[in-house]
């Protein structure tokens, strides 16, 4: 059993998928000769050849659009968009075709395409390299949206995504790329569509995903030490399908919920979780669902991102606010 970084774990998943299924092809900008700007695809071209792992011209719409054509001919493409902010040139292909092809062909044509996107902030990147795009995909019917939080989860969820006959937008939290975890090749964790309780608690349910799971766990440790609060931390893992049952079970237990995500607050995942909670769990709630999130502003310059990003302090302040709702 090996301690792998998330980069190595994703590389292992790609390699295992290509080994298992000859229809899997990996391509994007700088993924072959260079092995990817984060080295995620390192060694794949050498091992599997030019037809299985190859570089593309600098054209994101072409990366997704050609993947659709390959899928029509029976391939299982795993394209990479180099950074979150560069998914936008491919938006039309994703929204108008990738998401809709099954429906447009009345169920006859599957789109078994996994779009990998190094995503989110926290590593001091230049402009357009730290975007939270998940809400765009969640709101586009026909896409599955998967966001791993750790190396082992990334390995397992990526293999599941590649095997899935539906298109998957696979958002890799860059800030967790170099965090190590034990990864057992060939084993799977919970499938896509299953949230996982990363830490059990009774005081407040913290619902999060991706790079903020580790931050929430750190906050939970501090909260217990300093305040005696027992936070329950839920890692959603996939946003579509959303495992609201796991969230609901937790809220029924704690009566309180804080949604914790990087992306801007308005109409983010927090809005959806809050809506679902008040629709389905109204009488179980001790406090309104609160949100600890990024702001409704463009992503800030790298030197200021730590003040913009929701961290331990913003989360614990929000938890405190939740606890201030007390039935008399």
């Amino acid at each position: 059993m090996a301690q792998l970084t998330m980069v190595e774990a994703i590389n292992a998943a790609l390699s295992d998928a290509m080994q298992t299924d000859e229809q899997v092809v990996v391509f994007g900008q700088d993924v072959a000769r260079q092995g990817g700007v984060f080295r995620v695809t390192e060694g794949l071209q050498e091992r599997f050849g030019d037809n299985r792992c190859f570089d593309m011209p600098l054209a994101e719409s072409a990366i997704i659009g050609s993947a659709i054509g390959m899928a029509i001919r029976g391939f299982r493409p795993v394209p990479e968009i180099q950074f979150d902010g560069f998914t936008f040139p491919a938006f039309e292909q994703i929204a108008s075709h990738l998401a809709k092809y099954r429906n447009r062909s009345r169920g006859l044509l599957a789109m078994p395409i996994t779009v990998r996107v190094p995503s989110f902030g926290g590593i001091g990147s230049p402009e357009h390299h730290s975007e939270s795009t998940e809400t765009l995909w969640v709101h586009t019917a026909g896409l599955k949206v998967v966001v791993p939080s750790s190396a082992a989860d990334a390995y397992s969820l990526l293999l599941d995504s590649i095997e899935c006959d539906d298109p998957v937008i696979f958002l890799e939290p860059k800030r967790r790329y170099w965090a190590r975890e034990e990864v057992v090749r060939g084993t799977r964790r919970e499938p896509i569509g299953r949230a996982v309780v990363r830490r059990t608690g009774t005081t407040v349910s913290v619902v999060t995903y991706g790079g903020l799971v580790a931050v929430a766990l750190e906050a939970a440790r501090i909260a217990e030490e300093q305040h005696g609060w027992h936070l329950e931390v839920i890692d959603l893992r996939s946003l579509v399908p959303l495992d609201f049952d796991t969230v609901a079970t937790s809220i029924i237990k704690t009566g309180r919920c804080v949604v914790f995500h990087e992306g801007p607050r308005t109409l983010g995942m927090g809005a959806e979780i809050a809506a679902r909670a008040q629709e389905e769990l109204f009488w179980n709630m001790e406090a309104p669902v609160l949100r600890a999130t990024g702001f409704d502003t463009p992503y800030p310059p790298g030197r200021l991102e730590h003040l913009w990003l929701p961290g331990v302090d913003r989360l614990l302040d929000t938890v405190k606010q939740s606890l201030s709702y007390d039935r008399i």
Partner: peptide, 8 residues
């Protein structure tokens, strides 16, 4: 673009 992908 779909045509090019299918051609590839």
């Amino acid at each position: 673009l779909h045509a090019v992908g299918a051609a590839m």
